[in-house]
């Protein structure tokens, strides 16, 4: 829908754009679909507010935002990838390898800017490698990123001999421990990342092509769009986001671990999908992803506050993912008919 309302390239046809002409019911249900996840988040917060006095305090909400930031940033890249009808399983491993490169550079006494650039470049390069293999190698994204997931993890372990790199100076750790007013630095980074990514996705040609490729790759290609180049860049963005998350994670733990970021791919996919992005591609928003990441963060925080057993927590989180996607699918089906 977003596409139809803005200047879209000729090939851009999202799943929704192919739906039958707008009916009255459609127009009524559209907001429910757009805001479904927001309503879910608000409802969740309301329930937690009733259940525990510790939830709705400024310090706890900032706490949740800070904890969510890492997953939320990884999920930005995942949203780009899933919007283009792909998948990226390597994000967690890229977090690890970008982190250890950054950590090693810092411990070798490199200036902060150089170390950051090296870490981020590592992530970007891994993403570009994924993208190149997918678009020029013609391989399925699932297989390619499954492979790089293992390669990047192994490389991170090899590079560090399995040992964490710890102890950085305060100048770097400000990225996690610093505060602007009362807002923690990771939350500020998250805000900047979302603003920039949202701009790219909705206001640039590249952003429009992301939707177009996800909606109908063949039509996009036939319209003269360099699909291969753009697909490579999409995975590059994902790698870039993973590297950004790695910077915050490393600063937060004061340690770069080769085993960091395990299962982050699943958290990021969950946040994206809860946020209403279609796994079929071409349909979804970054705002939705942010809300999805917040739902997961609030849920984990709330269950901790309530003292729920960690086994039950996993069941609840899994349940929420399934229910969120179920609701989304039901609403979408209604939209079409």
């Amino acid at each position: 829908m977003i596409i139809a309302s803005s200047a879209a390239p000729p090939g851009a046809r999202s799943v929704d754009a192919m739906a039958p002409p707008t009916s009255r019911a459609h127009r009524l249900l559209l907001p429910a679909r757009q805001f479904g996840t927001v309503i879910g988040l608000v409802a969740l917060c309301a329930v937690l507010w009733i259940l525990t006095p510790h939830f709705l305090t400024v310090s706890n909400l900032l706490n949740v935002a800070e904890q969510t930031s890492i997953n939320a940033i990884v999920a930005v890249g995942m949203t780009f990838v899933i919007l283009s009808a792909g998948i990226d399983l390597s994000v967690g491993s890229i977090v690890a390898i970008a982190g250890v490169v950054l950590g090693t550079a810092l411990q070798a006494g490199q200036p902060l800017v150089v170390a950051l650039a090296l870490g981020v470049a590592t992530g970007f390069a891994c993403g570009l490698a994924n993208g190149a293999l997918i678009s020029w190698g013609g391989l399925p994204p699932f297989i390619v990123t499954l492979g790089t997931m293992s390669i990047a993890r192994g490389a991170a372990l090899l590079f560090t001999e399995g040992r964490p790199i710890s102890g950085f100076d305060a100048g770097f750790r400000v990225l996690a421990t610093g505060r602007a007013g009362f807002v923690p630095a990771p939350v500020i980074v998250m805000g900047i990342v979302y603003a920039a990514a949202h701009f790219v996705l909705t206001r640039t040609t590249f952003g429009r092509y992301v939707y177009a490729i996800g909606g109908n790759e063949e039509a996009t290609r036939l319209s003269g769009v360099p699909v291969r180049f753009h697909k490579t860049m999409i995975y590059g963005v994902s790698g870039l986001m993973s590297a950004t998350a790695a910077v915050i994670l490393t600063a937060r733990l004061n340690s770069a671990q080769p085993i960091a970021g395990m299962m982050y791919e699943l958290d990021a996919i969950a946040a994206t999908v809860i946020g209403g992005t279609s796994l079929m591609g071409g349909d979804g928003t970054l705002g939705g992803t942010l809300v999805g990441a917040l739902i997961m963060g609030v849920l984990r925080n709330g269950l901790n506050l309530l003292g729920v057993s960690s086994f039950l927590q996993q069941i609840v989180i899994g349940g929420v993912i399934v229910v969120a996607v179920l609701l989304d699918t039901v609403l979408k089906r209604r939209n079409r008919t």
Binding site: N63, L253, S310
Partner: peptide, 21 residues
């Protein structure tokens, strides 16, 4: 407890959350 033994980040989140209570 964290789900996996090596998940320091999750352990850190748990500590932050428990401090709130």
């Amino acid at each position: 407890a964290a789900e996996r033994e090596i998940d320091v980040e999750k352990q850190m989140q748990i500590v932050e959350n428990l401090i709130q209570t």
